[in-house]
Design a binder for these strands. Sequence first.
RNA 1: GCCCGGGUGGUGGAAUGGUAGACACGCAGGACUUAAAAUCCUGUGAGAAGUAACGCUCGUAUGGGUUCAAGUCCCAUCCCGGGUACCA
Length: 921
Amino acid sequence: MEFNPSNIEKKWKQKWVENKTYRVEIDTTKPKFYILDMFPYPSGAGLHVGHPLGYIASDIYARYKRLKGFNVLHPMGYDSFGLPAEQYAINTGIHPAVATEQNIARYREQLDNIGFSFDWSREVRTSDPKYYKWTQWIFMQIFNHYYDKAADKALPITDLIQKFETEGNKNIQAVSDENTPIISAADWNAMSERDKNIFLLKYRLTLPEETFVNWCPGLKAVLANEEIKDGVSERGGYPVEKKLMRQWSMRIIAYADRLIDGLDTIDWSDSLKEQQRNWMGRSRGASVKFPLENDPEIQIEVFTTRVDTLYGVTFMVLAPEHPLVKDLTTKKQKVEIETYINVTKSKSEIDRLSEVKKVSGAFTGSYCLHPMTGEKIPIYITDYVLAGYGTGAVMAVPSGDQRDWNFATHFGLPIVPISDAQRDLDKQADKTKEGHYINSEIINGLTYDAATEKIISVLEEKNLGKGKIQYRLRNAIFSRQRYWGEPVPVYWDNGVPHLIDEKDLPLALPAVDKYLPTDNGEPPLGRAANWKYKDKYDYELSTMPGWAGSSFYFYRYMDPQNDSEIVGKEAVDYWRGVDLYLGGTEHAVGHLLYSRFWNHFLFDLGLVPQREYAFKLLNQGMIQGRSLFLHTKSGRSFHVLIQLADDQDRLSFENFEKYIAQDNRFEGIDIENDIEWKTDAHGKKYTQLTAQVEKMSKSKFNVVNPDDVVAQYGADCFRLYEMFLGPVEQAKPWSTTGISGTQNFLRKLWSLFYDAGSGKYLITDTAPTPEELKVLHTGIKRITDDIERFSFNTCVSSFMVLVNGLKDLKCHKRAVLEPLVTMLAPFAPFTAEELWESLGHTTSVCDAQFPLFNEVYLKSDEVIYPISINGKRRGEVAFPTDTDTKHIEATVREMEVVKKWSETGIKKIIIVPGKMINVVV
RNA sequence: GCCCGGGUGGUGGAAUGGUAGACACGCAGGACUUAAAAUCCUGUGAGAAGUAACGCUCGUAUGGGUUCAAGUCCCAUCCCGGGUACCA
């Protein structure tokens, strides 16, 4: 029988569907394992060979775990709300749901071609109302809770109301708006319903806020910070500007500490954890108040991480937007300050970035007082101080901070050294924490830790400062002025937001005539006709951001049909959380942060059992495209569709004429003369292209569709090859150079079962020899170890070694081949099923048991301890000789192999060339 | 600038501190063939000689160090990739 992948694939794809092979249910007799892939956005372009990399890796692990006796949950679904479908709808008028449906069908077909073991009965789609009912439901819970700092968790807003009614808010430690006034119970009870609701917004975990948002006119959308790269939108590259808008926002800051500390409990890559830590940017320091010279009742509050440098302060700098600037500006300085503010305002985001090194600022004319010395300190404004971070004011220490140093040098302000370890202050700032303080009154002579402690305690005494923790993280903007997203389940009554009744969920997307904003600038939902809550109230018109639906989907997979709960208790108690999560690093500070945030919140509500939902995360690297360029002699270059070139990156004249010549990109180019044509050995004309690694994308003509690779080489070959390319985490360019290696491997494997010449079946029931068993068990050990440490590329190598070994031994024995096929099933499921059947099994190889290795077969006659000795010797020596003994004993002891020579039974030592000694027992 | 990774043959890449280069591609030679493809076998880090085999020297970006032993650990330098950016 010949090896024919496409027949095998067709047969088993059908059998898997018929037998519901990958259906999984709760089974308390087995340990569970939940392995999850980040679900894809179903784009119109379909899958390319880069997408399945992670899915193949997770599928291998899922199948492996199943063979190891685990009850494995391995689902797949679609993150089907998103901008491209909406952009397409704007252009074509086709409802995004329709286009999305088509894209999903295409994705599904492509995924099925690769032989994944997903349980499709659990599929979820974020744009399905049955699904987004729960996205909206979670939003409602977030609205109905506040963060209690004392309990360190979210509590119902009704608890808060109760406290307000009895004791006001003075004893409440909660995360709330800055400057929330203290009210008494009487104050509260005297409020109107509307005022109460407005007051409560200061506490709710989600609230509408007038905020400066990143408005992208090109996309007509508000973007999150992480959707902006280099001042332009990540998708599309449109300019972004600041705009004041009413936006729903979520108090993720309430969870900042838990999100930072939680990182220590999960097994994610260091770089990813570091990214999240940096993103949240927790800095410990102190806030210090500087009283104004003219009115000491008013103080400028600053945040500093180096309160120890307080005596080095020689001036104060405020952000141009700082609220006190207006009052501080003296008549004399008014023109200068106003000019400066106008200049800063007109600068675009990009200009500001490019002018980072330039020093600019203006003097307000006013002074504040040093909280320790009472000295007069001039107050400046400058654009290097950001209004949005800390208090928007900075105490400037030119001797310790380079930006302050630059500013001081530019404006001729004094630079006071504060430590005896500071060097070269005439050239630059020195931020050392070494040495002893000087010019610093109460902390003179002290070192860093003692000085910091002392200053804070004195400031606290004077009520002019205290230790403080500052975060870079801001509240997460939750509104998008778009159509294709979850409607926010809120209606407005007299300017106050109210939740719709839970009974009315899901709040479905209404039909609209166009997917564009209304004429008066409302989001597209403003176009919906007669769309009123209870026929009376206006609905919120913004929709939720992309990350909403993907922040809890892993729980819906556990119980996808449940219509009364987000996830049933039995299901969540059994599956608990994700044991292995696979996805790209690009979600480091987006999805992976927000989903942790929501998970912590759901945990507070007692709905989920774990603080962190994904214990182990594996990042797959991106597979890049290889772009090919055709260069003309006149110096122009063009992308050439990768499929048109041969494997030496040459483009034949034939292909050029057939597919490219009439391309309008080539208008006006002298094809015969401006392109360098060569002739190969067979007399065919060709031109040499050059290659470059780029992101795989349609516009770069470098997309490779997995369907094509599967059609040519077979799904198993494709799977093996993608794994063989290199470590899963590593980025690499796609190339089929070397795919023949995995193809050969599968053929060799097949030839252990069938004789290629005669087509005869070769399996025998003879008992294996010790040598054969040794080859097999060495293989089992290596393969098991490789899978356990997710080293799938070396694992494929291990399979190759094993099959080559068996081939050399001409081993066709059932007892050896059965375990081989079982082990191979995760990697090459189609071939494994077929061979498993040929071995006489009637059940799927998925129901088999992964073989265990037996160390007995691994032991050789000679035990070789790797030991090196001083100097270079060779040849054989007898049992330890005088001079070598010491070293040898020392090393052997160190390796905990044996304690004394007399106890080892070592007969002789062979000193082999170089640095090793073989010990013969 | 700062924070993470990383630098190994012609190529992709292997190596719990223990014979560096597994496995595969490519290449070269050979077998089969009228020929080619396919397949199979052999060789393949560099180097000098040598030729009966074995063996020898140098080699993991560069320079130091620790160790009986370093691609692996430590220090410094250079280069590449990713993240981030006036965060006080």
